[in-house]
Simulated scan of single mutants.
Amino acid sequence: MMQISFYVLSESKAQDFLGFICQLTQTALNKSSQSLLILAEDEALLSDFDEALWAQDASSFIPHQRLIANENTVDNIGSSLAPVLLGAYLPAEFNGIVINTTSRPVNDFITATSNTQPARVLEIIKPDDASVQDGRVKYKRYQQLGYELTHFKV
């Protein structure tokens, strides 16, 4: 069963959104051997994540790879050495951890033929009204699907 964790950000964490995502990515990688995907639909945000992950200090540099649309073949991902992927879609056969920064539930990104079933989803909820509202919609949707839900205020 898919586990979904909601991270409800405080104002200060939301102001350092990129820093928080990098920290969460590092923590998830430390606790698991699974690959991780940071899901974002905004190209500018993907670029920011790309830069932020490089900018971590040398001891905590996070190797990552940016997914390019239409290149989501299994060997492309399978041969990837980077444990962290950045993209606007879920690659076929992906079954690791997803950090979802989009306004939509992860299920919206899973196609019937892709055989994709993330082990765990980390939903990021910012303290603004739109993000909170999206979070409620996602929570209800996941609840209806019978997923295991937890939430943390950070």
Rank of each mutant, 00 (worst) to 15 (best):
K138H: 01
A92K: 14
A44M: 11
F152A: 05
D57S: 12
L24K: 14
T150E: 11
I62G: 04
Y7E: 09
R66Q: 13
Y139R: 11
N72Q: 13
R136K: 12
A52C: 02
T101D: 02
S114V: 03
T25S: 14
K153S: 07
G78V: 12
N76E: 13
T27V: 15
F17C: 00
I62P: 06
I68S: 10
V98G: 00
H151G: 02
A44T: 13
A82Q: 11
Q3I: 14
T150C: 07
P83M: 03
S131H: 06
V132A: 09
S10P: 07
S33G: 11
E93H: 13
S103A: 12
D108Y: 05
P83R: 07
L29H: 09
K126I: 05
D134I: 01
I110N: 06
G96W: 04
S32I: 08
L45N: 01
Q34K: 15
L39Y: 03
I125A: 05
N107M: 13
D128N: 12
I62H: 03
Q26H: 13
L9W: 04
L36W: 01
F109A: 03
F6Q: 08
D129Q: 13
E93L: 13
L86M: 08
T150D: 11
V121P: 01
F109T: 00
D16T: 14
I4T: 13
G19K: 08
V98M: 00
V132Q: 12
R120V: 03
L39M: 06
I38N: 02
A119M: 08
G146N: 05
E93N: 14
T111N: 06
N107W: 01
A69Y: 12
